[in-house]
């Protein structure tokens, strides 16, 4: 099978929906609805099923991109979307109060998938944050014994998100080579 599937996950407002629409080569499918929960202090719309896009690679390979809802009440969608995924992109909103807690939370949720595949972490919203340092994220990942690149990203930037996806693909490739 030459089709790859990866998922974008992370807390509400990290930029999963935006990231997929930034890099998709087809019009993305989005299932955002008017927010009535705490989300609405940050933004008007929230994802209730999934985001979907496609990124074309060289040749006729393509990657299917699935974005998850952020709120825990949608955790059944996290399971559904994880099936057969070859890697996880975790977007963290670096301007939130305790972004490391979000990192730990989502890594624990996707622990099995991550241990079998690969992870790349993008920290967004750092332009709005007082604390712009990525070191704490790297440190926490080391403590958790997780191998992952960490990048500062702006979900609105196609360049940033493409780079993040490429970093993930690179570590998936390495994993495959180790396995074979």
């Amino acid at each position: 099978m030459s089709d790859l599937k990866i998922i974008f996950t992370g807390p509400v407002g990290a930029g999963k929906t935006t990231a997929i629409s930034s890099i998709s080569d087809v019009p993305p499918v989005n299932t955002d609805k008017a927010a009535s929960d705490m989300t609405k202090v940050k933004k008007n719309q929230t994802t209730v099923a999934f985001d979907y896009g496609v990124m074309n690679l060289n040749g006729d390979e393509k990657i299917h991109l699935y974005g998850t809802p952020g709120q825990e009440r949608f955790n059944f969608m996290w399971d559904i979307l994880s099936t057969n995924a070859l890697g996880v992109i975790l977007l963290i909103d670096g301007s939130r109060k305790e972004p490391l807690n979000d990192l730990i939370f989502f890594i624990n949720v996707f622990k099995d998938l991550i241990s079998k595949t690969a992870l790349a972490v993008g920290v967004s919203q750092l332009d709005k944050s007082a604390n712009k340092c990525l070191k704490p994220y790297n440190k926490k990942l080391r403590e958790m014994n997780i191998k992952s690149a960490v990048f500062e990203v702006d979900a609105r930037s196609k360049t940033d998100i493409s780079l993040l996806v490429k970093a993930l693909l690179f570590s998936i490739d390495q994993g495959l080579e180790y396995a074979s």
Binding site: V29, T31, K33, V48, A49, P69, Q71, R73, F74, F76, M77
Partner: peptide, 17 residues
């Protein structure tokens, strides 16, 4: 309640699409 709510929202949005 939370499960009923979230499942309904997800299914209906997929149905819409």
């Amino acid at each position: 309640e939370d499960r009923v709510g979230a499942m309904s929202a997800a299914m209906l949005s997929l149905g819409d699409r």
